[in-house]
Amino acid sequence: MKSDTPFELNSDREIERLIDEVMSSTLTDLTDEQYRKKMQRRKEVQDQRIAQAVPEKGLIIVNTGNGKGKTTAALGMVLRSLGHGYKVAIVQFIKGSWEPSEKQVFSLWEDQIEFHAMGEGFTWETQDRDRDLDKASAAWAKSLEYIRNPDFQLVLLDEINIALKMAYLQVDEVLAGLAQKPPNKHVILTGRGAPAALIERADLVTEMTLIKHPFRDQGVKAQPGIEF
């Protein structure tokens, strides 16, 4: 059967090559007709890529890296989910010794969201490994409740990667827990130092790269609305 499109894309690599080809020219140097044709080809590529996409599925999403914005990006997905009327659960593995401002905001959706700040601050503040282990274990037990619960569309495990990096939790234990999620549930895991096995299992991984930071480079302390 002849395709309705002028070309067929047989691999992700070919799709990426065509996208690069379409976008490679400096658009300001094109005539109006050249611009129209280039954007038309870009649309053809994108439309076929969408047509070849698999049905929707629940994703395991990892935000990691040394740069700022891992939790912030995850909270953006939380807001989107709330906007769709979904139920969301947030479990924070490190925060807890202070009241996160996002918890106050999300109280506006108290019928849709469950929020648990179960840590006691950064590890250098607690200085008690056994207590840190107990807190991480309790946070993971609470997380499993929401991972298994089909009523919640999105679960955010904030800073769980740090708990894994510090060996407060075992990677195999977390992977086994993620395997118990319903097919359409999304789970976001944030924090620097995500282990390789988790990255391998995830569907979407973003690494935040640190280029400049006001505390490191200028000695500017954490500020409300930016860090907390």
Rank of each mutant, 00 (worst) to 15 (best):
residue 13 R to K: 14
residue 66 N to D: 15
residue 182 P to V: 13
residue 14 E to K: 12
residue 222 A to Q: 08
residue 166 M to D: 11
residue 124 W to F: 15
residue 188 I to L: 15
residue 31 T to E: 06
residue 209 T to I: 11
residue 204 L to V: 08
residue 69 G to S: 07
residue 138 A to P: 05
residue 43 K to F: 14
residue 32 D to E: 14
residue 185 K to E: 02
residue 73 A to N: 03
residue 157 L to N: 00
residue 21 E to T: 09
residue 50 I to V: 15
residue 125 E to V: 15
residue 121 G to C: 03
residue 215 F to A: 10
residue 133 L to M: 14
residue 105 V to E: 14
residue 137 S to H: 12
residue 37 K to C: 08
residue 172 D to I: 07
residue 69 G to F: 02
residue 83 G to Q: 03
residue 127 Q to W: 12
residue 175 L to W: 03
residue 55 P to H: 11
residue 145 E to V: 05
residue 59 L to H: 04
residue 156 L to W: 00
residue 55 P to F: 06
residue 156 L to T: 00
residue 57 K to I: 04
residue 209 T to S: 10
residue 148 R to Q: 11
residue 172 D to T: 07
residue 83 G to D: 00
residue 132 D to C: 08
residue 174 V to E: 01
residue 137 S to Y: 06
residue 57 K to W: 06
residue 34 Q to G: 07
residue 15 I to W: 06
residue 63 N to I: 06
residue 134 D to K: 15
residue 51 A to E: 10
residue 18 L to F: 06
residue 174 V to W: 04
residue 192 R to E: 09
residue 165 K to F: 13
residue 189 L to Q: 02
residue 78 V to S: 00
residue 40 Q to S: 06
residue 3 S to F: 14
residue 33 E to R: 07
residue 27 L to N: 03
residue 228 F to E: 11
residue 119 G to H: 01
residue 64 T to S: 09
residue 214 P to K: 09
residue 133 L to I: 15
residue 42 R to D: 05
residue 15 I to R: 06
residue 103 K to F: 12
residue 228 F to A: 12
residue 207 E to N: 15
residue 42 R to G: 12
residue 2 K to L: 14
residue 169 L to G: 00
residue 59 L to V: 01
residue 16 E to N: 10
residue 12 D to R: 08
residue 37 K to I: 05
residue 141 A to D: 07
residue 102 E to W: 02
residue 103 K to I: 05
residue 161 N to H: 09
residue 56 E to F: 13
residue 61 I to C: 02
residue 157 L to E: 02
residue 7 F to Q: 04
residue 23 M to P: 04
